[in-house]
């Protein structure tokens, strides 16, 4: 089950990178000075328009071709993070936009600087509002890690394939087990995060829940 550990590592690390990057870009897009919003917008358009597998190949083989050698695992994290960031920007942005502008004005009239207003007033509200979108994204990244097989990362899926190559007759059985593992994880994450959502719920602070 070494593949499973790799899958989890991939998911967590790329989620971490992507969330950080996306939160900064989301604030950049909503509150930054030009050209920050423009850069964020272009970034979003490009990485939303290219399949993950193409991003993987560009990062892994492309960087190698121009002389930067990185291992497949790092390439997978970079690829997943770049891709997911483009989607997460939207999650954080709609959360930011649903916070009334008056909140920032009130913070400023207390004497807070713009950065303080973002840090103490906007950020905490935004993070809570983003939980549903964020948990959705989490499960997507988990599922997308399977695509890292394309550049040879030995994660859950590839591990499964090794076994199949050795014993082709049990392919179906092995693959069903792999599917079950993913399913359990996705299910657990969804449950766990909706618990989190209820736990940190503040009355009157909610976004119309999608789905």
């Amino acid at each position: 089950m070494r593949g499973l550990a790799v899958t989890i590592e991939l998911t967590l690390l790329s989620m971490l990178c992507a969330s950080t990057l996306a939160i900064m870009m989301a604030f950049g897009r909503s509150y930054g000075k030009q050209p920050l919003p423009f850069i964020a917008l272009i970034y979003e358009k490009i990485f939303r328009g290219i399949p993950l597998i193409v991003i993987f190949i560009l990062v892994y083989f492309g960087l190698a071709q121009i002389g930067i050698l990185i291992d497949a695992f790092s390439a997978a994290i970079i690829g997943l993070a770049l891709h997911s960031t483009a989607y997460q920007i939207q999650i954080y942005r709609s959360a930011i936009n649903s916070i009334p502008e008056g909140q920032v004005i009130a913070a400023q009239s207390l004497g807070m600087s713009k950065l303080q207003a973002i840090r103490y007033i906007l950020l905490p509200q935004m993070l809570r509002l983003s939980i549903p979108g964020w948990s959705n994204e989490f499960t997507i990244i988990l599922k997308d890690t399977s695509i890292a097989i394309a550049i040879g990362v030995v994660e859950l899926m590839r591990q499964g394939r090794y076994v199949i190559v050795r014993e082709p007759s049990v392919a179906l059985y092995i693959l069903l087990v792999v599917a079950l593992i993913y399913f359990i994880f996705v299910f657990t994450i969804n449950r766990g995060l909706s618990y989190l959502e209820k736990r940190y719920h503040i009355s009157g602070l909610e976004i119309t829940k999608a789905r």
Binding site: K143, S146, M157, R161, S169, A171, L175, Y182, F183, V186
Partner: peptide, 16 residues
């Protein structure tokens, strides 16, 4: 479950 796993089940799994 990931799309890739589903494709593998249909292509490799069912073949078995």
């Amino acid at each position: 479950t990931p799309l890739l796993v589903q494709l593998f089940i249909i292509y490799f799994g069912l073949a078995s």
